[in-house]
Design a protein around this nucleic acid. Structure first.
Ligand SMILES: [Zn+2]
Ligand SMILES: [Zn+2]
Ligand SMILES: [Zn+2]
Ligand SMILES: [Zn+2]
Lengths: 136, 136
DNA sequence: ACGGTTTTGACAACCGTTTTCATTTGCACG
DNA sequence: CGTGCAAATGAAAACGGTTGTCAAAACCGT
């Protein structure tokens, strides 16, 4: 439908990790795109609602978004340094969550699972000189 | 050390689920306690830093806190209706997170895991008349 | 071209949280 | 008891991400 929406989606597709709304907005403006911050927020929300992008909250309360390859339910292993993210499936976790829920009489179980760490290139860069910039 | 800090801690101890800073502040004022919102925020942060309370972010970005019985690492199964929370251990999840991390060359693995659902009393109350208030 | 609908975006309002900073409190020492 | 000093407190202002407002702009079928 919306041209803007696709533009935002495209930015996410070209990104390696999760991006914030302001982040995406800044990049689009830098590229000369004529778009408003409000529209970026709306696009991201729409994409998230329609399940086209995954979203999560950073520790400091910022919402970040990512266009994931898999449309199926999955989780994320994200580098806390550079943001690089890999999608991971966790059948074991899915079962565990379901089990622990019903075990206590809870229904309609959902869960949030995120794994953080320092990726190989970042941890090797850390030991030596200054590393590559951040965000991919 | 601080008298205020303990007072805040106490409120959390008496609570069944996670509470927000403003939430705690409101209750303390209602009880006639003379305390400022700033201090509540500081107390909660200190308690969280020292590991005396667990904290997590709600979907709408609010930080909430809870005084948990177990000092060991654990996760939470929280009723999305009334907020009632039960602490759950998940050795399987711990292992899985660690495995999936190192599998991809990540180090210093940490993780966030929360399980949500509707508790037994809430789901039975939902089917019939109007339910009990919220928060405990 | 034309009315009606949808989308857009500059700007202001929101709201939880953090900072600031002047005041109060707690405590050791004389 | 004073006095001095450092930590704690809290009212109010600043912050920052997000959402709401509303008038202008882009679309679209006719
Ligand atoms: Zn994903
Ligand atoms: Zn899952
Ligand atoms: Zn806990
Ligand atoms: Zn764990």
């Amino acid at each position: 439908m919306s041209n803007r929406r696709d533009a935002v989606h495209e930015i996410l597709r070209q990104s390696e990790g999760f991006r914030s709304a302001q982040d995406v907005y800044a990049e689009m403006r830098a590229e000369g795109a004529k778009i408003g911050l409000t529209t970026v927020y709306r696009a991201l929300q729409a994409l998230a609602d329609s399940g086209h992008v995954d979203t999560l909250r950073t520790d400091d309360g910022e919402s970040v978004y990512r266009a994931c390859a898999s449309g199926d339910h999955h989780h994320h292993l994200v580098c806390r340094r550079c943001g690089r993210t890999v999608e991971v499936a966790g059948p074991a976790v899915e079962r565990w969550a379901e089990a622990v829920g019903s075990e206590h009489g809870f229904t309609g179980i959902t869960h949030t699972v995120e794994v953080f760490g320092t990726c190989a290139s970042c941890s090797s860069a850390a030991a030596k000189p200054a590393g590559v910039p951040s965000r991919a």
